[in-house]
Amino acid sequence: MISVKELTLVSDEQIAWEELGGGIKRKVMSYNDDIMLVKVAFEQGGIGALHTHPHLQISYIASGAFEITIGDDKKVLEEGDVYFVPSGILHGAVCLAAGVLIDVFSPMREDFL
């Protein structure tokens, strides 16, 4: 596995998928201590369980459709849509149509390395 810390020019094929189970896999594309970009692929029916973390998160729906829950809000988002998760807020995703999320975290997620 190559080190992607502060990798400046990243080709998708140079990063291997990490299988997470439940129809979900991810690639940490690049990061430093302040920010991290992660690509997450979901099969239809895949569930990103409700959880919290201290990081700020903003996510772009690159493809597919997802039911996103953030706190008391729930909405179906599709390709081209974005959601923002404040620090410490309960959130999760249910994949309605196979797709990919592009997640950005600040600071970086040490637990993903």
Score class of each variant (00 low, 15 high):
Val94Met: 05
Trp17Gln: 08
Glu67Cys: 09
Glu67Ser: 09
Ala16Thr: 07
His55Gln: 14
Gly99Thr: 03
Leu20Ala: 13
Thr69Lys: 15
Pro54Gln: 05
Leu96Asn: 05
Ile102Asn: 06
Ser59Asp: 04
Ala49Asp: 14
Leu50Arg: 08
Ser63Ala: 10
Ser30Ala: 13
Phe112Ala: 10
Leu37Ser: 07
Glu78Val: 01
Val104Pro: 01
Ile70His: 05
Met1Cys: 07
Met36Ile: 09
His91Tyr: 10
His91Asp: 03
Glu78Asn: 03
Lys25Glu: 14
Gly88Asn: 11
Gln14Ser: 15
Glu6Trp: 05
Val76Gly: 08
Glu43Arg: 11
Ala97Gly: 08
Lys5Leu: 13
Ser30Thr: 15
Phe42Tyr: 07
Ile2Ser: 14
Ile35Leu: 15
Phe84Asp: 12
Gln57Asp: 09
Ile102Leu: 15
Ile70Trp: 07
Asp81Asn: 06
Asp111Glu: 15
Val4Asp: 13
Ala41Phe: 07
Gly48Ala: 13
Ala62Asp: 03
Ile61Val: 15
Gln14Phe: 11
Asp81Val: 02
Ile47Asn: 13
Phe42Asp: 00
Gly80Tyr: 00
Ala62Val: 01
Gly80Thr: 00
Pro54Cys: 02
Lys27Arg: 14
Ile24Lys: 10
Glu67Trp: 09
Leu113Glu: 12
Ile2Met: 14
Val4Gln: 14
Glu78Gln: 05
Ser3Leu: 14
Leu20Asn: 10
Thr52Ser: 13
Ile47Arg: 15
His51Arg: 10
Gly23Asn: 09
Ser30Glu: 06
Ser106Lys: 04
Ile70Ser: 01
Phe112His: 04
Ala65Ile: 09
Leu77Trp: 01
Lys75Val: 12
Thr8Val: 14
Leu37Thr: 10
Asp34Met: 07
Val104Gly: 02
Gln57Phe: 06
Gly99Ser: 04
Glu18Ser: 11
Ile68Asp: 00
Val4Glu: 12
Asn32Phe: 03
Glu67Asn: 12
Ile15Arg: 13
Leu50Thr: 12
Lys39His: 08
Glu6Lys: 15
Val28Ala: 02
Gly22His: 10
Gly99Ala: 03
Leu101His: 03
Ala16His: 05
Val85Thr: 13
Ile2Arg: 09
Ala97Leu: 08
Gln57Trp: 02
Gly88Asp: 07
Val82Asp: 02
Gly99Phe: 02
Gly48Arg: 01
Ile47Cys: 12
Met1Trp: 08
Gly21Trp: 11
Ala93Phe: 00
Cys95Ser: 14
Pro107Tyr: 02
Phe112Trp: 07
